[in-house]
């Protein structure tokens, strides 16, 4: 199992490198595992569907971060800004009578994408620590704005009164969360298809180039800033979809959707799962949420300390996250 793609070949074969490359993006069996798990969970754990939907929303959120951080190499502490913009957009639409969920997702994605494009255009002129601080500033500013605009957003009390029309006019969001679960799964599936295509597209490969060697990218004539802003905006739009899903399925938007805490949490999820591998989000988000659930029961006060310790262990002993460890084991077994 080599993720994201095996582009290297150690033993020479008769097949020309051109043909070898041309079939490198083929779907592999293990790429379907998350969907098998999602379907299985639906059947086996009918009473945990609300949690399941929540997990998938976080997977989607972490996946959007992977595009920005894992592929383009932009480290951000402000990714929740876009999750929050998406959540408030979908929430406010529903509160003000736009109860159709799917069109609201598109609107939320567009709004978050525009906010991402504008903020990205500015902050991506900087690098390193400055960039990190600026992303943090953006999420803090938006959080404070949402807090101040309490008459619109509900401020610290949160945005309430979100009601949705049935999905496709047919399926009412039920109390058991069945429709919400399937809805989230389908949206996640669609976004996964899109991101998978993107990261294997020339655009996605050029983001990898930006991450690998910025100086070289400039020297081959790449419009580096534009590429980075585009990636940032797409990641923001996808994070906006995750936020919108959260608003729709929980029918509530709390101020903390747009917080440093959530930005940090999604970063930890991705690092736990594995950065820049497309599937890190699928492992990291559930792992984080399970760990959070167990640890907060064992140690309600200091659970975050244990999350932190887990993170330290991963960063020190398993740089590639769970997927990185999986890679190492797989290669040992093959030998």
């Amino acid at each position: 199992m080599v993720l994201p793609l095996p582009l290297t070949r150690s033993k020479p074969t008769a097949e020309s490198p051109v043909e070898f490359m041309a079939r490198s993006h083929r779907l592999r069996w293990y790429e379907l595992l998350p969907w098998v798990v999602a379907a299985g969970a639906f059947l086996v754990y009918p009473s945990y569907l609300a949690l399941g939907a929540q997990v998938m929303i976080m997977v989607l959120f972490a996946l959007s971060l992977d595009l920005i951080m894992g592929y383009a190499g932009i480290v951000t502490l402000g990714h929740a800004a876009f999750f929050g913009v998406g959540a408030y957009t979908a929430g406010l639409l529903a509160v003000h009578g736009w109860g159709e969920p799917i069109s609201a997702l598109f609107v939320s994605a567009a709004v978050a994408g525009v906010v991402g494009a504008i903020s990205g255009y500015i902050v991506l002129r900087t690098t390193g620590l400055t960039l990190l601080m600026l992303t943090l500033a953006v999420v803090s500013m938006l959080n404070e704005a949402a807090n101040k605009a309490g008459s619109i957003t509900g401020g610290a009390d949160g945005l309430q009164g979100i009601t949705l029309q049935p999905l496709l006019g047919l399926f009412r969001f039920d109390l058991y969360g069945r429709v919400a679960y399937i809805y989230c799964a389908l949206v996640l599936f669609a976004v996964w298809l899109l991101v998978r295509l993107l990261v294997h597209s020339p655009f996605g490969r050029s983001l990898t180039g930006v991450r690998e060697n910025l100086v070289r990218m400039h020297a081959i004539g790449a419009p580096v800033h534009r590429r980075m802003v585009t990636a940032y905006a797409i990641g923001a739009a996808l994070a906006g979809i995750a936020g919108a899903l959260q608003a729709q399925t929980t029918q509530f938007v709390a101020l903390n959707v747009m917080s440093f805490d959530l930005s940090g949490a999604v970063l930890i999820m991705l690092i736990l799962g594995g950065v820049g591998r497309l599937y890190g989000a699928f492992l990291g988000a559930p792992l984080y949420m399970v760990a959070q659930d167990m640890l907060s029961r064992l140690d309600p006060v200091y659970w975050f300390f244990w999350i932190g310790l887990l993170l330290v262990m991963v960063v020190m002993f398993a740089r590639g996250g769970v997927l990185g460890v999986g890679d190492v084991i797989w290669h040992r077994l093959k030998k």
């Binding site: 041309a22 295509l197 294997h200 020339p202 490969r205």
Partner: peptide, 21 residues
């Protein structure tokens, strides 16, 4: 490949696989 794509102005393409070219 990255360089050739860039030279041909195709490196910003999003909706096809890079190596299918």
């Amino acid at each position: 490949v990255m360089t050739v794509s860039e030279h041909r102005g195709r490196a910003g393409d999003m909706f096809r696989y890079a190596f299918s070219r």
